[in-house]
Amino acid sequence: MARATLIALLALLALVCASLLAGVAGLDARALLTSGEGWELIRDSRLPRTLAALLTGAALAVAGQIMQLIAQNRFVEPMTAGTGQSAVLGILLTSVLLPGAALPVKMALAALTALAGSLGFFAITRRLPPTQPLLVPLVGLVYGGVIGAATAYAAFQADMLQYLEIWLGGEFSGTMRGRYELLWLAGLAALASYLVADQLSILGLGEAVSLNLGLNYRQVVLAGLVVIALVSGLTVVTVGMIPFVGLVVPNLVSRVAGDNLRRSLPVTALAGAALVLAADLAGRLLIHPFEIPAATVIGILGAAVFLWMLYGRGSHAA
């Protein structure tokens, strides 16, 4: 376990170095030592972009893990169960109704609609039979689709369809100093969830076991939903929707590190950060000097892993 963590950390470090060096503007390690321009490029663009990818990945992976524990289902995550779509709807409505609103206001409203969206999701899926675990993600997809359709209609009416694409397709090419810092809040929310790691692990054993152990079930669920909503709202506002991170990463980590969050949550955060950074890096390098959005890279990768999870060896639904 300790060796695996060390290897993961080294891999992440290598990714960070590569991310700092890769881009359209030329930059090699030697120039850094001699010219001030290189540092400026790093400080204003490369470092913010790298940090944004790391924070987004870590926060999304943790949010996905929390959602899976609350739903008692390994196949849900905020971006494919209506939370992300609700956040987009929130931003759209804010942009239409309060066009002059500052970014933190937009973010707060996006988080609020995201919270409402996840509450709606859990209100619906509570009624599903526990013997049909695959119904939960399917209902989530339909639910997200309905909210997405309503959003698209609203955007069409307000003549804002082109903005919609920015929020729907997450990518990091526009990340600059001064435009990504809200993501630290998302990272902080994910970090805070580690303080209740035990409570969240117990949540994963179900409502009855939670109540039996004297856990304030509603309060812990609500705290989890707030983390999910904050992470969804903040990432959608700053970089756009990135699907599958919250789905794939917790599942893969759970296979290796188990379900005791006190041990597995840090691994989940690290792996999520590495995945999103790697996807962003691949998007920057594959058709250099053009870029593929990180969300697209992860969408392709994530769909393949998801299928493997569903049909591959040792798949467990609930």
């Binding site: 526990p130 994963g204 054993l205 009855a208 152990l213 004297g214 379900d259």
Partner: peptide, 30 residues
């Protein structure tokens, strides 16, 4: 109450990847 009364419900989550030691350890949570 959780220190006075414990219940083992009928349906428990069987697909958890908690270890037995971790699970039993959660019994001390209250």
């Amino acid at each position: 109450l959780a220190r006075k009364l414990a219940i083992l419900p009928q349906q428990v989550n069987a697909s958890s990847r908690l270890t037995v030691r971790d699970l039993v350890g959660f019994g001390r949570y209250p």
